[in-house]
Each structure stands twice: as structure tokens, then as C-alpha cells.
Design a protein around this nucleic acid. Structure first.
Lengths: 196, 196
DNA sequence: GATAACCTATACCGATTGGTCTAAGTTAAA
DNA sequence: TTTAACTTAGACCAATCGGTATAGGTTATC
């Protein structure tokens, strides 16, 4: 089982497991026992490697942003038709948040979990929301200039609308068991955007 | 101070206070000490009157739906121009969730806080989301038939979109300190809806 | 084989949780 | 004035929390 004096478990893998627990359960509800069980390591290893529960959470939140959120942004800014990129992102989000057991967006659930007076966490959340808004804005701007979507609102305003809508989708997907509502939302969004 | 063998405090007032605490802090984070302090009653009175913490929470959640959420629905279905009603609701939500210390929508924060396996709470949340969606749908349907808003999407789909968008606004308003984002969101939403 | 590094498991700690219960005080009615 | 209903304050309980420390086992290197 063990491999010697070098790290006998992969911290990246353990962090990814911790991320899933925090994502699904939230910071407070994720107990150390639950984290240890899913991470498959001992309590001492956790504290030696990640500090304490809070710093483990911050690393897990960063890991989420570097994987899940960044994938969305990359897809938005991918080469090719900006409208198609937008459509694919929205449909991907719809499918993801319609899956049974969907846990929403880790940014959104933590907005709900933490107060603003938690300045460190609030600034992390704000940063990634802003980055997502900016990616939406760039894609929309390209699509508008290509004549593919509505110009009745500025790309910046539309980007902010899409940020709110997608956060709402992620949130509501947690509690609804069918995908009808999210499907309708994406359908309506695209119909409005395409009204030229 | 006391008034005799009948209730010496108003349970409705105490419940409203409890609602605010649960709204602001969430179920788990709202400690009994905090609830008692804000409600201004003793621990024994709380348990005698409201049962336990969970049943107090359920009553508080119901109280929220009967006041805050119902006000939105009533405004949507008020007589007069359906488009104006919609505009007023969106602007009212924007202002409310832009206030410093805004705590979002109590439905939304609890969607984030509870897992779906909490069937009693999940069904309450689903019920009020559905009622809100229906109110949006009726208002939109009226506005479409009056030729006031876009018919590129069905009233049902647009209602679901507005439900997601407003939940996202309430959520994001918790963490942003200025009202720019929510203002842009409402502006874009109305611009798209009015594109005929 | 000894050593050092890493691991899991677990005992233990102080603090806090929701909840129960008792004691003492207040007020209206009999 | 006695009684009953209601109150607050707070002692108390078992359970759980995050976190620390210790003990014992495994493996690679020397």
C-alpha cells in the first residue's frame, strides 16, 4: 500500500475529492470525518498537507475555479462561431445542472453560505464571477459584431444578464428533479438573443 | 411588562424576527442563542410555542412565502399594464437585492443550504418556485397578447427564464456591493423582452 | 538491521451545539 | 391570598465539532 518516505498519496487527487465534498455539502456541513472518508487519508496527513479545514476549503475552491469555471470560460472564448460557443455553453450548463444529484455551481452555493463580512472568500467569489462575466461579454460582443445576436442591449449588459441567469439555473437545478425548467430557460434565452 | 396568563409576547412578531434571522444566516448558522436574542423571548417559550428549531424554521419559511414572495406575485398579477407590472417587479427586486447587507431570497439560499433528500423542505421550495413561475407566466401572457413584449418565446418559457434570472440576481446581490450588475441585468432583460 | 519519512488509527481536548429541565418571578382570575 | 398560567434565566446533558498529540505500522534508503 505505502510506497516509502515520499508522499504516499497524491495531494492533487485528495484535493479534488475534498472539492467534491465541499461542493456537494458546503463548508460547514462538510465534516472532517466526511472529508477524510472521501479523501481516503488520515487526519494527520490532512493537517500536515493542507493546514486546517478552512485552508483546505480555500484550496478546494481555487481548484474548482481552475477546472470547472475555467472550462466554461475557455469554451466561451474558443475559436469559431461565438454564437455557437454561447449555445454550447448554455446547453452544457443545462445538462450539467439537470443531472440527478446536481449540486449547482460551487461559486453560487458559497455566495449563499457565506456572509459578505468573510472578506477573503467574498473577494475570491467576486473575482471569478467577474472573470465569467468578462468571458460572456467578449463572446457576446463578437456575436453582435457578426450580426448573430440582438443589439438592443449592450454586450456588457447582456453578459451580466447571462451571469445572473446561469447562476439561477445552477441554483434551481439543485432542487428540481426534471430538466424541463432549465431547458425552457435556455430555449427562451437563445430565442431572445437571436431576435435581431 | 408581563400581561398575565395569556401569551405575554406576540408569537407572530417573534416568528417574524426568527424569519429574519433564518433569512440572513441560514438554518444551520442561526444558533438558538442568536434566535432567542432577536426574538426577545426565553428558550422555554420558544420550545413551548414553536416546538423545536426545525419546526420554527419551517414556520419561518412559510411566513416568508406568505409575505415577501406573495407580495411579488400580487404585484405581477395586479390590474393595469402587465408590462408595467413586470417592470416594477424587476426594478423592485433590483433595488431590494442591491441594498447593502442584502441577504438574497430565502427560497434561493435554502436551495443552496439543503440537499434534495430533505424532502419536506424541498417540496416547500418547489411549491413556491412554481407559484412564482406561474405568476410570471400569467403576466407575460397578458403582455404578449397586448403586443407589449416579444413572442419569440412562449410565455411559459419566458416565465422560467425570469425565474432563473431573478433567483440569480438575488443570489449575486448578496456578494456584490454595488448595484451596477443588477441594474444592467434588469436593463438587458427589459430590452430583450421589448424587442418585438 | 537501523533509521527516517510517511502513513492510518485513535485517544483526547476545549468549545459549541440543540434540547430538557428546574427555579424564581409576574400577572390575572378565583 | 391562593392558584394557575406564563414568563425569563440558567444549570445541565449528550453529541458533535475542529484540532492536536500519540502510538504503531510500512517502506525506501543507508
Amino acid at each position: 500500500m505505502s510506497r516509502g518516505p515520499e508522499k504516499q498519496f497524491d495531494p492533487e487527487v485528495a484535493l479534488a475529492k475534498a472539492m467534491k465534498v465541499f461542493w456537494a455539502r458546503g463548508y460547514e456541513a462538510a465534516s472532517l470525518a466526511e472529508l477524510l472518508e472521501h479523501m481516503g487519508i488520515g487526519k494527520k496527513s490532512l493537517y500536515d498537507t493542507f493546514g486546517n479545514k478552512r485552508s483546505l476549503f480555500l484550496k478546494a475552491l481555487d481548484h474548482y475555479a481552475q477546472t470547472e469555471v475555467k472550462a466554461i470560460r475557455d469554451q466561451l472564448l474558443a475559436p469559431g462561431s461565438p454564437l455557437e460557443n454561447l449555445e454550447q455553453v448554455l446547453q452544457h450548463l443545462q445538462q450539467q445542472h439537470s443531472l440527478p444529484g446536481s449540486q449547482g455551481c460551487m461559486l453560487g452555493t458559497n455566495i449563499a453560505d457565506f456572509d459578505t463580512d468573510e472578506v477573503e472568500i467574498a473577494s475570491i467569489l467576486r473575482y471569478h464571477l467577474q472573470a465569467t462575466e468578462d468571458a460572456f461579454c467578449i463572446a457576446i460582443d463578437r456575436a453582435q459584431k457578426a450580426g448573430e445576436i440582438n443589439t438592443a442591449a449592450s454586450s456588457r449588459n447582456l453578459a451580466r444578464l447571462l451571469l445572473c441567469t446561469t447562476q439561477g439555473m445552477a441554483l434551481i437545478g439543485r432542487v428540481l428533479e426534471d430538466e424541463v425548467l432549465l431547458r425552457s430557460t435556455v430555449e427562451a434565452t437563445l430565442a431572445l438573443l437571436k431576435t435581431v
